[in-house]
Design a protein around this nucleic acid. Structure first.
Lengths: 186, 186
DNA sequence: ATGGCTATGCGACAAATTGTCTCAGGTATA
DNA sequence: TATACCTGAGACAATTTGTCGCATAGCCAT
């Protein structure tokens, strides 16, 4: 695909991804490059700020849980640098409390992982109110979402089924059965 | 911390409670009167708007699920009447999606029922930035994740249950039933 | 106003999925 | 070895879903 992006004067809108998970950054980076953004990645708040101070991005995707610090402070700072920056907060540890805070701090939207690139794109477009014109991509089915989520928590816990079941608040037997069944696609 | 009233000639700040549960209104009304507010109650959006147009309240507590309509539209309208109105959105069916929407529409805070009067008071006084939000240690349970996801797709589709069910590839009857249940607190 | 189309709430019953309990190993550690 | 985990799996009850059906309501074009 196209790969020009001379950082600054690129003809593509600049998008900063901030997440301490490098694999995640890479995957997302590729997906969004394909969609016409000029991507930069940062894995820490400090890096992100340095980058943003040099050239403020038009869009940003910020993970809530950046190692020890909270991505919330980054949202605030990015907004201070340029109130026009559109920021989507992303997190694997979603909660209403942090969602409220993120929006108050100026985030454009707040999404719980797992998400795909299309959902993030949609989030950037969203405005309040009617908001929902596009919705082109088909979101994951609930079954699929559950599968992805389970897989994530499972790997985060060394594939320990018992622990995962407890964390997910589901019966171990049920988790066993779910894992035994699908790799379903929809 | 509560500022003296400016609008009416009442010496107490005016607070409008909008909830279709009359018992809940009464209880809350008493509790807040005791704390120095001048309370008015409404059980429908129309009533609330009529009251608010006559004399805009300084504070408002709005339930998300008002019979058929969404309390979100009321938040927007109250804000249009007076951007200074401090509004707390309250709901027994809390979700990240509606929380995000509420805050974007100008709500001061968003709380899940059950709440007590003190929490509401605190919510009114809360400002951005401070509140030590714990960045929840645990991921959401699968059940909760599903609820959040459903709520998201639902709001993205204008609360159309049939459409959402189709998108999510689940039976409409099942979606109805899931929505009827309250989200689990986990 | 009448028909066509869609959304919605809800009852009923069968089909499928979960919750629970239970066993019988496996592995690591004090 | 005893203890404390993890795991897979059978059996059966308890719940949840899938399916139908039906009545009601709003919208729109004829």
């Amino acid at each position: 695909m196209i790969e020009p992006s001379l950082s600054d004067n690129s003809e593509y809108p600049s998008l900063l991804i901030v997440d301490d998970d490098e694999v995640f950054c890479d995957v997302l980076s590729k997906a969004l490059t394909k969609r016409g953004f000029s991507i930069t990645c940062a894995h820490t708040i400090d890096d992100a700020l340095n980058l943003a101070e040099t050239s403020t991005p038009e869009y940003a995707i910020v993970d809530l849980k950046l190692s020890s610090e909270s991505g919330l402070v980054l949202v605030e700072k990015l907004r201070n640098l340029d109130p026009g920056t559109r920021i989507v907060m992303l997190t694997g540890y979603a909660s209403i409390a942090t969602a409220v805070e993120a929006i108050k701090l100026g985030a454009t939207h707040y999404l719980a992982k797992p998400v795909d690139a299309d959902e993030i794109m949609a989030a950037f477009e969203r405005t309040v109110g009617e908001a929902n014109i596009p919705i082109s991509a088909h979101p994951l089915s609930v079954g699929r979402l559950e599968w992805e989520y389970i897989q994530r928590i499972l790997t985060e816990n060394d594939n320990n089924i018992s622990v995962t079941a407890r964390i997910l608040n589901m019966h171990r037997r049920t988790l066993q059965r779910k894992l035994a069944k699908r790799p379903l696609r929809e």
